[in-house]
Design a protein around this nucleic acid. Structure first.
Lengths: 329, 329
DNA sequence: TTGAAAGCGATACCAC
DNA sequence: GTGGTATCGCTTTCAA
């Protein structure tokens, strides 16, 4: 019933109170059946009395592992990244790994920040356009397990991403069926690999149908306001947006404009926005699982780098034009 | 130009290569002007050659601090928590602190998980109903700096939260002006302190106006589906929902039902949902700043516990009834 | 079964 | 200015 422990207890104190060595305390507090039941109880009692919690630092230093991993993303703006991170955290928690997050948001010292994170974890997931390929390669050369997420592959590194190109082509096909012919692609392909894929798919689909390529309008940013700002100058049958927020911004300014988005945010449903649904949680979870595999695999015979493209799916609502008898919810 | 360093270099190797002691390496790599320019350069060269990055573990162990802090939340479902976490991360990054995240999502071992996190950080922010007050108190007694976020205060601990009660009263007033008299409150006050505050404010507002109290309908969960499921049995002039997702769910089932939400999600705008806007990023950022203050303050004369309620604001759209000439966007 | 002691990788005090 | 070394808190041989 001691009221001490206002200053974190160490294994030494527990050992002292229990009247054993620190080695024995360590054993008693973990698996180890090299301890008498009696001894174990003494130790546990002492530990409880002192409110002892082993220091992660000491533990990690001795074990040579952090039991933590990190996820780096460009920014968390919008629900998209958040969902991915969520899926990631859930999976990581599943195998007992803590998770660190880092938003680079265009910071000049992004690489330093990532390097710092790298020294706190057993492995890293890098999402989107947060740091350069060269930097990734350098990090990977260190031996640090890395998984790339929603980002173009780097040689030797695992990559998970959503299907962009092919689904963009399907989207274009659908718009063509509506009879639309003059297209604008709204969004900057350089801002995110996902955007680039959607843009490429758009143009590919158009080319295959023998239709003139879409005009590229690089919005300033990729949120609602960027969409609103860009909306004014638009002139096209249909505006294919790089994501939902841009599309919703356009819709706010021009409610009758034919437009499509990407991500299937909750708002898309209420705006009647035709868009593409992505398995966001699953993207995060897959990255976490793959990373864990890398971390735990024997480093002498590493498995070949994996690539996976998770399927996405066209969600047709009303913003792409009128459909006869269908219900759009 | 060495191609080594496939295995993380230590300060000892750098010392060896540079031909100096580890103490000197440590000095050269940090501030310290107790090093010759010449020596410093030797050391830096060696460090670069070995791609040396100091181990956080060694560093933290020696310095007695993690330079990291964590945020615990019940779950990240919905955009609400994500925004808060975002604001938190940004602020934390601002003063050079890494951030760990932990979603308890009703896990039975939530306390163990939080305890684990506690051993990895210099301080903790606890959001919502993730762990018990008793546990918080115990943790705080350890001397671990803690800030509570969107959660009822615990003696001796800082608390930041959004205005719930008062704004709920304002919301009720508005609904009364519309002429509505029979109310339902949809959502479980026990599931989150925020919900409890909104519920209390609702009843208080009603009572003050001499109107019959709202029927409490405890939805099973607090997402869209929970709202849809609950919608069928509803019978009231107006349904005051604990959050936007519930309200949107109701709207999906009964588009003409008078209903209000809370959070002002992006979707609310497109659904014409009357709701309440909260400073989510600011909530997170404030928590991070306060925590940092606690961590860095001298522990012998700690400041008195702080409480702050961040203002929220009613956002009137069309779901609460028709308004004459106003535009609801 | 238990204990003594050698690390793990830094920081910082104390001499020189 | 630099070097030697104690220290942080734990895990894990190696002996006993």
């Amino acid at each position: 019933m001691a009221m001490k422990a206002l200053t974190k207890a160490t294994i030494y104190q527990v050992a002292q109170v229990a009247g054993v060595s620190i080695a024995t305390v360590s054993r008693a507090l973990r698996d180890s059946d090299l301890v008498t039941q009696q001894t174990r109880e003494k130790v546990l009692a002492a530990a409880r009395e002192l409110q002892f919690t082993p220091s992660r630092l000491g533990r990690s230093l001795a074990e040579g592992r952090h039991a933590a991993n990190g996820i780096v993303f460009p920014d968390l703006v919008g629900p998209y990244y958040a969902e991915v991170v969520l899926g990631y955290e859930a999976a990581a928690a599943g195998f007992g790994s803590s998770v660190l997050i880092l938003a680079t948001r265009g910071r000049a010292d992004a690489e330093a920040a990532v390097r710092d994170m790298a020294s706190r974890v057993d492995g890293l997931t890098v999402m989107g356009q947060s740091v350069s390929d060269e930097f990734i390669a350098k990090l990977a050369a260190t031996g640090l397990p890395i998984v790339l997420l929603s980002r173009d592959p780097v040689p030797g590194v695992d990559t998970v991403r959503p299907q962009n190109q092919r689904t963009a082509e399907a989207l274009v096909e659908h718009l063509l069926e509506h009879g639309h012919r003059r297209f604008v692609f709204l969004g900057d392909p350089d801002v995110a690999p996902d955007f680039a894929g959607r843009y490429a798919g758009t143009q590919a689909g158009l080319a295959r149908a023998g239709v003139a390529p879409a005009d590229l309008v690089r919005a300033h940013g990729f949120d609602l306001d960027a969409g609103r700002a860009a909306a004014r100058g638009l002139d096209a049958d249909a505006v294919i947006c790089a994501n939902d927020e841009l599309a919703l911004g356009v819709l706010l300014e021009r409610p009758t404009q034919i437009v499509t988005g990407w991500d299937d945010l909750l708002a898309a449903r209420f705006a009647g926005l035709t868009t593409v649904r992505q398995p966001m949680r699953e993207l995060g979870a897959t990255a976490a699982r793959w990373l864990n595999r890398r971390i735990t695999e024997s480093s002498d015979k590493p498995a070949a780098p994996r690539r996976r493209v998770l399927p996405t799916r066209l969600v047709v609502r009303s913003s792409c034009g009128i459909h006869s008898p269908e219900v759009h919810r």
